[in-house]
């Protein structure tokens, strides 16, 4: 008699997280390729960039990109100070990635802590955390971020902290629900009956099972933080000139909107591509973890 497989669940290829990089749809793979590209550009910026991103040249101001009549000396042209646009774009990748990763990581720390406390302990802890989340949501975050930056000064670290303080809520909301759900599972009851301490239960039973939520929200918040950082720069606060921040480049380009629209178009396109890459990765991860939406 031939060996017939039994009626087991379809998922027989081991735990999901091991398969992540090899599975998923086209969008997910595209996102991973794009994001890897951005990371490589950021890491090797000094080797790729054709010029010093800070060096100005009054003789070479507002050169158009090659396809609009420019030269290969400045493939994407130059800005209002005659700085090479491509080089600034390449170094700008570093700022966007650092701010996005840093702010999302700090937001994750704040939000996850609150969410886990509320979800695991419930009761009064949950009510207090809910109250804090309500306050956070009620405050207009961009406005508040601008005000804090104006008061506290600018710089990458300040931007990271400000963005984290205004972007932790989703971690808290989702993890509260996820932790409450996991804490109600029988394996948590069993661990408790086995004599495990509460700290051990949180560490070994609950956290590993909400990790996927954390990773997914992290990608979304990272995208949000990149956008928000660019918006702050665009409004003239946060990362300051002469740093090659993409938002700042667009802000500087506004003055030349009619003369050289490429200054705005290309930097905005770069932000869009990076955010798109991060979001595609996030969407792909979510589809892998929660596949029910696909029918």
């Amino acid at each position: 008699m031939s060996v017939r497989t039994t009626n087991l669940p379809l998922d027989q290829r081991g735990p999901r997280f091991l398969r992540l990089p090899f599975a998923g749809k086209f969008g997910f793979r595209l996102g991973i390729v794009m994001l890897t590209g951005f990371v490589l550009v950021a890491v090797f910026a000094p080797y790729i960039a054709p010029h010093d991103p800070y060096s100005q040249s009054l003789l070479a101001r507002l050169k158009p990109p090659v396809w609009a009549g420019g030269t290969w000396e400045h493939p994407l042209g130059t800005d209002g100070f005659g700085r090479d646009y491509l080089s600034r774009l390449i170094y700008g990748t570093r700022i966007s990635l650092i701010v996005g990763l840093g702010a999302a990581a700090l937001a994750m720390l704040i939000g996850t802590t609150l969410g886990v406390i509320a979800g695991v302990f419930g009761g009064a802890a949950n009510r207090i955390v809910s109250f804090i989340i309500s306050i956070r949501l009620a405050l207009p975050s961009l406005l508040l971020a601008l005000a804090i930056l104006q008061i506290a000064g600018s710089g990458v670290m300040v931007v990271v902290v400000v963005l984290a303080v205004t972007h932790w809520d989703r971690f808290a909301v989702v993890l509260r629900t996820a932790c409450r759900q996991v804490a109600g599972q029988d394996y948590v009851t069993r661990a408790r009956a086995m004599g495990a301490s509460e700290a051990r239960i949180v560490r070994t039973e609950i956290l590993p099972n909400v990790l996927s939520h954390i990773v997914i929200i992290f990608t979304f918040e990272m995208a949000q933080c990149i956008l928000a950082a660019a918006a702050l720069s665009f409004l003239g606060l946060g990362i300051q000139a002469p740093e090659p921040s993409w938002g700042l480049m667009m802000s500087e380009g506004r003055a030349f909107l009619v003369i050289n629209p490429w200054l705005i178009t290309i930097a905005g396109f770069a932000i869009m591509l990076l955010v798109l890459a991060v979001n595609l990765v996030g969407d792909g991860l979510r589809d892998l973890v929660v596949p029910k939406e696909r029918s």
Binding site: D186, M194, A196, P208
Partner: peptide, 28 residues
């Protein structure tokens, strides 16, 4: 010790069979 109702929620999905059975020994 308990044996609980739902065999799907009784086991931590991140642990293998061996790890699950060994857990009480590890804790103690």
């Amino acid at each position: 010790q308990p044996v609980l109702q739902d065999p799907y929620s009784s086991l931590n999905p991140r642990r293998t069979v061996e790890d699950t059975i060994r857990l009480p020994l590890d804790i103690h």
